[in-house]
Design a protein around this nucleic acid. Structure first.
Lengths: 388, 388
DNA sequence: CGATTTAGTCTATGTTGTGGACTAAATATC
DNA sequence: GATATTTAGTCCACAACATAGACTAAATCG
C-alpha cells in the first residue's frame, strides 16, 4: 500500500529517485538528472549537493559530448564512504564480503568449516569473528558499514531474523540475527533468493531484464527477479523448483512427494556418494558415457521443470547457477530441447538458458548488494549514519 | 521505479492514500484517517473535502462508538458519481457491466452470440452497441463512466490494446481497443487475469489475502493475486496453468508438448463432445460411476499441477473457478489429497482449496473493478472528469 | 452542571519544489 | 578572432503543500 507523502518524506523520496537514477544510468550531469526525473534543475542541484555531502555521490570531471553549450559536470555514485556487509552460512563454509555503495567488492573472504558438526551457537560465533574482522578492515579503508544480511540455506522469517528449519545444516528455530549480535542492523534471507540478486548485481543480471536464477546445490532453489526486485510469493517461499513434480509416479523424495526435480537433478542424483563436482566434470571431459547419460537425464528433467516454471512465472531468461554452472555444457542442451519442444508453439520466444557469471559467491554478494539496494532506495535514512 | 515527487504529485499521492484507506477500511472519521495515514487532521480534512467535492466520498452520519468525546462524522467512498465499464468478449457470449466507485454493480448484461462464426469487426461492433447502451443507462443514473477494460480469451498486448492470438476465437492480431472506438479510454486484458481480480473484489477475495485463482474453461488459466495486485511475469503471460507438465510422457497437447494439465482437466478432457457442464453435474449427482472417475482423474491431475504451482508461486489459498466451480465437490477432494501428500511435510500449512464465489461474470466484473482500482490509485487524474 | 475527552476547523508557519532571471563556459558563425 | 548561440548550473522571489497548535463543537463522566 502506498504511504502518505509528508514534507520530509517527499524530500527523502526525491533523494532516492536521484540516487536510483545515478545507480541505474551511470554518471549523469545535473541537467540530465533534471530531465529524466522531471524535477527542476534547482531541486536536483540541491539534492545532489546533499548526496555529495553524505559521501554517496561525487562529481567526476566535465562531460564534453561534442555538442555545443557549456559542458556539464558528471555526477556519479561514490563508494568511498558507505558500504554493506554480506554474510553466508552454508553447509561446508562461512563467507563474508564488504561491498561499497557503487557495488564494488572491497573485501571478500571464505572460510571452509564443517558446520554440520558444530552447534548453531558455535557456527554463529565463528561468523561473528569473521564479520568483526571484516568490519575492522572496512573501517581502515574509511568505509562506514550501514548494515548486514546473512544468507541461510533454508526458509527464513525475515521479520524476526530467525531460520525455522535448515535441514542441510540440521538447524531448527535458530535466531541467527539476534545471536550474531553485531553492532549494526542485521537481517537474514534465503540463500537461493540472494543468489538470484547476486546474479542481478554482480553477474550478467543487469543486461538480462527479468530472469529466473536456478541455484542447484544439494537441493534446487530458484529466485525470480522481475523489474529489479525479487518475487517472493505470499510467505516468501516461492521458487521451490526442487520440488516441482517432474513425473508423478517417479521415485520418492524426502519431501514426502514423488518424482520431484531434486530426485533427477539434485546433487545427490548426479553425483555418486563422496564424489566432488570437479570429479564429475573431469569424467565428462573424458567423454565417460555413464557421466554423460546422467547429465542428459538430469538436463531433460530440468527442462520439464523449467517448462512448467516458464508457464507459471514467465521469465525472460533462465540463469543456471550452483552445480549447474560447471555442468552447463552437458546439461543445457537437453534442457533447452525439452523447453523448445514444449513451449515453442505457444510462445514467440522460448526463454534463453545462460550460465551464471558469479559462481559460489553469488549469495554472499547478493546479501551485501541487497543492503546497498535498501540504502539506495532510502538514502535519507542513512544520511546521518556515523562514519565508521 | 519510483517517480519523483513534486508538489502536485504529493497532493495526488495523498488523495490516493486517503481514498485507498476509505476503500480498504470502510467508513472512517477524519480523525481515524489522520491516525492511520500519518497525516495531520488539517491535511486530511482538506483532502476529504476535495474528494467529497469530486463526488468520490460522502459523509454518512455520526459515529458514536460508546467512548466519550465529540462523535466523529463517518466518511465513506461514494459510488453516486464515478463508475467504470467492464466488457468481455468470449467464445459464446458478450458481456458488459457498470460498476461504481464503491464497487457496487449497477448494471450487468450478457448477450449469447456465437463469436466463432462472426468476423472480429462484427463482434466488436456488436460489443460497441452493447457498451453504448450501457453508457446511456449509466448516464441516466447520473454516473460518469471514467474508462473501460475489455476481457479477452488470450494473451494481449496491454500497451496497444491488441490481442495477438486468441485460438478459441480464431482471432489473430486484432486491435480491439482501437476498433471498439468508444468515447472513453479503453484498455484490454487477459480473461484469466481479470477473473482473478473479479474474485478479489466481488467474491471472497478480500478475506483471502494472497490467492491463486484457477479459471477452468476450454483452456485452463490462472491468476495470482499478491498484495492486492496481479502477478504478471516479464511479458504478462504468467499463470498458464493449463500447460504445466503433469506427466512428461502423457498424451500430446495442442501446444506441442505432452502431458499438459489441459489434457487431463480441461473442458475437452472432462466432457464428451457437445455435452454441457450442467449435464455432467447431473450425471455426477446421479452417482454415475464413469462421471465420477473422470472427475477423480481430473482432480488428481489438477492436484499435481497445483502442487507445482504452490512450490513456485507460494499462494495462501487456491480458488477454483470456471468449470471447476460447479464440479468443486467432485474435483477438490482428489486435488487436495494430492497436494497434502506432496506438500504436507515441507510446509506448515497446505494452501486451502475454496470454490469461486463469482461465477461466469468474474472476468467482466474484474475488468470494471480494475478500472475502479486505477481511479482509486490516482484519483487526482479523475477529479476533473466531465460529469457524464 | 462543570470537567474531561475527542472531532474537526482555523490561522500562522515552515519546508519543499518551481520558474524565470542570471552567470558560466563551451561551440557555431561570420 | 569577435559575436551569437546553446547548454549547465546557481540564485532568488514565490507558490504549494503539510504542520503545529490554538480554538470551537459536541459528546460522556462524575
Amino acid at each position: 500500500m502506498a504511504q502518505a507523502v509528508r514534507h520530509d518524506s517527499m524530500r527523502a523520496g526525491n533523494l532516492a529517485v536521484v540516487l536510483g537514477e545515478l545507480d541505474r544510468s551511470g554518471p549523469l550531469t545535473r541537467a540530465a538528472l533534471a530531465e529524466t526525473t522531471g524535477l527542476t534543475k534547482t531541486t536536483v542541484s540541491k539534492l545532489v549537493g546533499d548526496l555529495i555531502d553524505a559521501g554517496m555521490a561525487v562529481e567526476s570531471g566535465a562531460v564534453r559530448d561534442g555538442e555545443r553549450g557549456r559542458p556539464g559536470v558528471a555526477v556519479r555514485l561514490s563508494g568511498h564512504r558507505v558500504a554493506a556487509l554480506g554474510l553466508e552460512i552454508n553447509v561446508d563454509y562461512l563467507a563474508a564480503c564488504v561491498v561499497d555503495l557503487s557495488r564494488t567488492v572491497r573485501l571478500i573472504r571464505t572460510q571452509p568449516v564443517d558446520n554440520r558438526a558444530a552447534s548453531p551457537v558455535d557456527v554463529i560465533g565463528r561468523l561473528r569473528q569473521l564479520a568483526t574482522g571484516m568490519l575492522a578492515d572496512a573501517a581502515a579503508q574509511g568505509l562506514s558499514v550501514a548494515g548486514a544480511i546473512v544468507a541461510l540455506p533454508g526458509p527464513v522469517d525475515r521479520s524476526t531474523g530467525a531460520v525455522h528449519r535448515a535441514p542441510n545444516l540440521g538447524w531448527r528455530d535458530v535466531t541467527v540475527a539476534e545471536t550474531l549480535a553485531l553492532p549494526l542492523p542485521v537481517l537474514v534471507d534465503n540463500e537461493a533468493n540472494l543468489a538470484a540478486l547476486g546474479e542481478l548485481w554482480f553477474g550478467s543480471g543487469a543486461s538480462l531484464g527479468d530472469f529466473l536464477h536456478v541455484s542447484g546445490e544439494i537441493g534446487i532453489g530458484a529466485g525470480l527477479v522481475v523489474d529489479g526486485a525479487l518475487f517472493r510469493g505470499a510467505h516468501g517461499f516461492a521458487g521451490e523448483l526442487g520440488h516441482v513434480v517432474v513425473s508423478p509416479d517417479g521415485p520418492a523424495c524426502r519431501c514426502g512427494g514423488t518424482g520431484c526435480l531434486e530426485r533427477y537433478a539434485g546433487q545427490d542424483a548426479l553425483l555418486p556418494p563422496d564424489e566432488e563436482i570437479t570429479e564429475l566434470v573431469a569424467r565428462l571431459k573424458a567423454d565417460e558415457p555413464t557421466a554423460a547419460t546422467a547429465c542428459e537425464r538430469a538436463g531433460s528433467a530440468l527442462g520439464v521443470a523449467l517448462t512448467t516454471a516458464v508457464n507459471l512465472l514467465d521469465p525472460d531468461t533462465i540463469v543456471l547457477g550452483g552445480i549447474f554452472a560447471p555442468l552447463f555444457p552437458w546439461v543445457s542442451g537437453p534442457a533447452e530441447e525439452a523447453m523448445r519442444k514444449r513451449l515453442g508453439q505457444m510462445r514467440a520466444r522460448v526463454p534463453a538458458l545462460v550460465v551464471s557469471q558469479v559462481g559460489a559467491d553469488a549469495a554472499t554478494l547478493g546479501a551485501a548488494g541487497q543492503v546497498i539496494q535498501r540504502i539506495i532506495a532510502d538514502p535519507g535514512a542513512f544520511l546521518l549514519t556515523p562514519q565508521g
